[in-house]
Design a protein around this nucleic acid. Sequence first.
DNA 1: TCTGGGGTCCTAGGACCC
DNA 2: TCTGGGGTCCTAGGACCC
Length: 421
Amino acid sequence: MRAIAISDSANFYVSAERIFDPSLNGVPVIVLSNNDGCAVARSDEAKALGIKMGEPLHLLRDKIATHGVKVFSSNYTLYGDISRRVVEVYEDYTPNVEIYSIDECFLDFSGFQDRVAHAKHMRRDVLRRIGIPVRVGIAQTKTLAKCANDIAKKNPIFEGVLDMTDPALADWLLPRVPVGDIWGIGRRTTRKLEGIGISTAAQLRDMPLRQARALGTVVLERTVLELQGEPCIAFDDVEPPRKGMAVTRSAGAPMTDFDTLFQAITAHATRAAEKLRQHGLVAGTLTVFFHTNRHRPDRPQYAGSRSTRLTPMSSDTFELVAAAKQCAIAAWPKNCTQNYAFTKAGVMLDELLPQDDQPRTLFDEPRKSPTLMAALDAVNARFGKKTMVLASEGTARTWQLRANHRSPRYTTRISDLPVVR
DNA sequence: TCTGGGGTCCTAGGACCC
DNA sequence: TCTGGGGTCCTAGGACCC
């Protein structure tokens, strides 16, 4: 029978920090978003203190001091590497793995005999080899598997593995699942559904399809079918081509003049170009945006944004930064007497194509940039990120992110390893 | 004082074409 | 005075995910 499993890590970022620092076990730990803004991962102990997902750090100061909460800046280099290692273990347990997010994978368990025993074995193996605790939900469709995973997460009695392929078990469990907990049902749709008396997963499953499409869209209709056990969301172990990518950041300190803003935009465009080259892609459109602090309506507000075509399509840092500069100049406020403080800026790329598929024109000349970019990437790979940058990135870096609590990059940087005496 | 950074998919409506 | 019936493409905005 068709069986899809989803495996996810418990409080992934916190679990990753705990691998290398056992003193973090049993105590409240949180990991912050970029710029040390909000709590985006919380240990069970931190959740018990009432710390919410996305809660701003500056509102948590009291709790942190009172309860000795350990605080970390996010360390994506570490989490990305740990994530890759966890996937390697999954691949020993099924030939078909679909990476869904940094801490979640769909696994094809179709045709396996004792799925629960298999999943429990895999779970022990991930913990032993990598040190990350995971939970596994199994069902006929992705939506049901996510639901089973969620139930396993909340009920320790399942010991981290719940197989919901048995219809009788699903019939017993689904009336106990709030509709808003279903994958794909967000806040808005929850409110609409509750408005017509649908408050559990079982009620949503039994909703007429026409009504589902009318209330939501075809997306909601698919969720209903998935809950009935009919797969509408394909299992996809080949990565779909990316359509766009973005590099956007809050600034560590507000940016008040064009030069500072353009330094940040240079850095973001540079990073975007690197990402393109890593994926072997070129972009057809570039967008620059920047805006003031939206949490402070009492201050002057401005949001600027401009797009431009890249002709020819490009992944060249110089070309992208030049295009970004034109956009930034065009979007910069004109004739203004206000003193705007910009807190966020970004560069977005769209119409991505594999480099080899990019259209040529009659007048294309051979470009020097591939060799130059390869050299640039090689220098930065060998001597460290940002060894060689465009001068327009500046040296002051006042706009740079705050990251005051970052742990060492234990698995990817030898100089970060603690010295044992 | 201090509030993240990515993505995807869908729909409606306008512009334009024959 | 009468004023069709298709298409496609693009954009903006909504909703959702982690």
